[in-house]
């Protein structure tokens, strides 16, 4: 049971974060609060993606040329050394020694696009405040009905 919890608790916390964001998007009344909820939802999904690519005992996805790896963590260094010598003999790198770079690429672009779309959402919020004098959902709805 403890093994299961240690192996999965990361995923469970990501789901908790995602649900906090989703609930805020549904139930909060203030538009900026809704957008904060959207940001939390977004980062929870990014966290999930990045953690798919995580590997136990692997180092960052940058190939080290110096070989002695002076400024790496101790554990990573040990793994890296063993792997590197093996890899040099085989002529290529061992995939288990490096974190999967593919989710990083996807999420890196998603973060920047996320801030750009957050900017668009902010512009819409300012425009709503212009037109209706409020950024609370119920007041805006009331004024639309008038």
């Amino acid at each position: 049971m403890l093994d299961l919890i240690i192996a999965k608790f990361n995923y469970w916390v990501y789901i908790v974060l995602m649900m906090i964001g989703l609930y805020a998007m549904i139930a909060k009344n203030n538009y900026i609060k809704k957008l904060i909820g959207m940001t939390i939802f977004q980062t929870a999904i990014m966290l999930f993606y990045v953690s798919i690519g995580a590997k136990q005992g692997a180092t960052i996805p940058i190939i080290d040329h110096h070989g002695d790896g002076g400024d790496h963590g101790e554990a990573a260094e040990a793994v890296g050394h063993a792997v590197e010598t093996a890899a040099h003999a085989a002529g290529s790198l061992d995939p288990d020694a490096y974190v999967n770079p593919l989710p990083h690429v996807l999420m890196l672009t998603a973060i920047v696009v996320g801030v750009a779309t957050l900017g668009v959402a902010m512009a819409v919020v300012q425009k709503i405040h212009d037109q209706y004098g409020s950024i609370e959902e119920d007041e805006v709805l009331k004024r639309i009905k008038l």
Binding site: I36, T39, V115, V125
Partner: peptide, 26 residues
Amino acid sequence: MGAVDVAFTEAAVGAGLSTVFLVATI
């Protein structure tokens, strides 16, 4: 987790720019 590039981007974007955008709108 070893995702240094993503961490860098998040430090610059999430903590810097999106906070500034939020403050500007508020």
